[in-house]
Every structure is written in structure tokens, then in C-alpha cells.
Amino acid sequence: MVVKTRPHPIRIYSANTSELATGDQLPAGVIAEILPSGQMARLAAEGADAGQVVEVDVPLVPVPASRYGDLEHLPEPAPEPWYAVPRLTTLAAAGREDRLRPQEQVHNAQGTVVGCRAFGTIGPL
């Protein structure tokens, strides 16, 4: 069993779905959908100040420094279930074999991620 720890579902596409799925391939390629569980495993975010200002294609854009705290709301490791978590949470929990992150993403014609074809883990760093 996979427990989804974010507020949106994860759609799992068949392995033969292309990275850029369009038209009929979007609904037809879905082989499973994992709905949100209501749990919200994540890293605590600390306030960020404006940081440095850099010159980019638009004039003077602030670049705030993100700071993250402790991992929140991820239960202790157990043989079951698996937890589908964001990539940053997966990195913070490196070495835990019970958390998964979406991998091999599928995008729609506008470039928005609509699902994945696999899950991945991150071993000990």
C-alpha cells in the first residue's frame, strides 16, 4: 500500500506512455491513481528574507534564501505502508526505505506534470 502525503493525487501511467502525453494518451495511459491520505509529511519551512538581489532578464529580482527545518509528520519506519512524499522530503529522509518519490514524470502539452511512470527512492547519502 502507498500512502500519499501531499494534497493532490498521483496518477501512475503505463511504462509505454511518453514523457509528453497528449490527447487520448492522458486518460488512457493511467493505470492507477493514489489519492491524498490527509497526512502531510514535509520539511518545516522557516521564514526567508529577501536575500540578495540579482540582475536577470527582468530588473532586480529578489532571491530569498530558503531554510528548511525538521521533517514533520512522517511516521516511524515500518515494513508497510510506503509513503509517497515530495523529492525534498525524500532527500531529508535519505536511507529510509519506506518513502517514495514520483519518478519518470509525464507532462501534458502545456508542460505541466500530470503523473509519473515509476517511483524512486534515495539510499543513504
Rank of each mutant, 00 (worst) to 15 (best):
V3F: 03
V3E: 01
K4C: 06
K4A: 05
K4L: 10
T5I: 06
T5D: 04
R6L: 11
P9C: 09
I12C: 10
Y13N: 08
A15D: 15
N16F: 15
L20A: 10
A21V: 04
A21K: 03
A28I: 04
G29D: 06
A32P: 06
L35T: 14
S37D: 13
G38W: 08
G38L: 08
G38C: 08
M40K: 13
M40W: 11
E46T: 05
G47I: 01
D49Y: 03
A50H: 12
G51D: 13
Q52V: 14
V53W: 15
V56K: 05
V58P: 00
P59D: 04
P59Y: 02
P59Q: 03
P64E: 05
H73S: 11
L74H: 04
E76C: 03
E80Q: 11
E80Y: 09
E80G: 01
P81I: 02
P81L: 04
W82L: 13
A84I: 11
A84V: 09
V85F: 01
V85C: 01
P86W: 09
A92W: 04
R96S: 11
D98C: 13
R99F: 08
L100V: 07
R101V: 10
P102W: 00
H107G: 00
Q110P: 00
Q110Y: 04
G115F: 03
R117K: 14
R117T: 09
G120W: 06
P124G: 14
